[in-house]
Structures are given as C-alpha cells and as structure tokens.
Amino acid sequence: MSASTATNTVETEPMLAPHGRLGMWMFLASEVVVFGGLLASYIFARLRHSSWDEFASQTMTSIGCINTVLLLTSSLFIVLSHHWAERKDIKKSGKYMLWAILLGVLFLVFKGYEYQHEFAKGITPLTNLFWSYYFFITGLHALHIVIGLVINALTLREIRKGQNLQRVEVAGLYWHFVDVVWIFVFPLFYVAS
C-alpha cells in the first residue's frame, strides 16, 4: 500500500473525530470525576450535618439565580458562535463570542460581590466545613470560568482573523461544561436550604 493510499484511508475513516474535539472530551471526562467527586463528598457531608441547612440559607440565592441565567445565556451565545463559525460567517460568530465573554465576566463580577458580602459578614473558608466546601467548590468553578474566558478571548482573536474556526467548537465544549457544573452547584448551595 502506498503512503498516499494509507493517508487517504485514515482521512476517510468515519469513526475518527478531530483531535482537538476528541481531546477536549477526554479532558472533560476527567473533569467529571474532579467536580463529581467534590460534589458527592459535599452531599455525603451534608447528609451527616443537618445544621448545614442554616448555613446554606445564608448564601445569596438571588445572585446565584442571576449567575445561572448569565451562564445559560452565555452558553446559548457560544453555541450560536459555533453555528455561524461553521458557516464561515465571521462577523456573527465574533459577535456572539464577544457576548459570551462579556456575560462570563459579569458572572465573575457577581461572584466577587457575593464573596465580598460574605467576607463582610465574617464568613471565610475557615469558618466551618460547610463554608470550606462552599468557597472551595465555587472558587474552583470560578477558576474554570477565568480559564474559559482566556480560551474564549484567544478564540475570538482567531475568529476575527478568520483562522482556525474549528476552535470555536472546542472552546464551546469547555464553556458548556463549566455551565453544566454550575447547574449542579447552584441547587446544592443556593436552593436546597
């Protein structure tokens, strides 16, 4: 078999996905274990401490709700950016990516306000185990948001250059995952009180 024939065989293999997308899915699968393990650990601990209901009632549900709306809307904008990137509409793709980034920044602003409010009440990660879980899990999630924003900003630059538009999908996968994590963080810390 000649080299060119072998290459063609690989390219037309229907079971293969682009390395970037497949790699991102593999990474996200490992993240499922990280966040899932943390949340499962929190649930087990909370089952043992009925007094945590009182602490959970002190979290700012309104801010958590606003942040959920922001992330869900941001996810919509990312998927729309991907939709238009596939159709080579750079202008629309860039516009939606920019909106997704702005909503992500707004999420962090609200999160910062929430932390500031809690610190002002004397609540810190060292207050008790509930608040340790709260600050660690929401802080790790916020760190993922920051990383996502950097990835999205770099992707926006590529969109504006009209290059590497396939990266919009990969960046979107990461952003949607961060959204999925928040979907579970929100009820655990803000609603189930």
Binding site: M15, L16, A17, R21, L22, W25, M26, L28, A29, S30, E31, V32, V33, G36, G37, A40, S75, L76, I78, V79, G172, L173, H176, F177, D179, V180, I183
Partner: peptide, 30 residues
C-alpha cells in the same frame, strides 16, 4: 446542555464512551 449545546446526542461513539467512562469512574468512586 450536553445533548443539544455540546451535541453529545450526535457525537461519534468514541466520545460517548469517553464521557460514559468519566461517569462510571465517578459512580465507582461514590
């Protein structure tokens, strides 16, 4: 979100297996 925004519903089988492996690992941990 996973099915429609991440398009998992129409992804290739390798990706579905990778995601399933993540959830299985979590399940066994729990």
């Amino acid at each position: 979100v996973m099915f429609y925004y991440m398009h998992l519903k129409v992804e290739i089988v390798y990706v579905k297996v990778a995601v399933l492996a993540g959830f299985l690992a979590l399940f066994f941990f729990v």
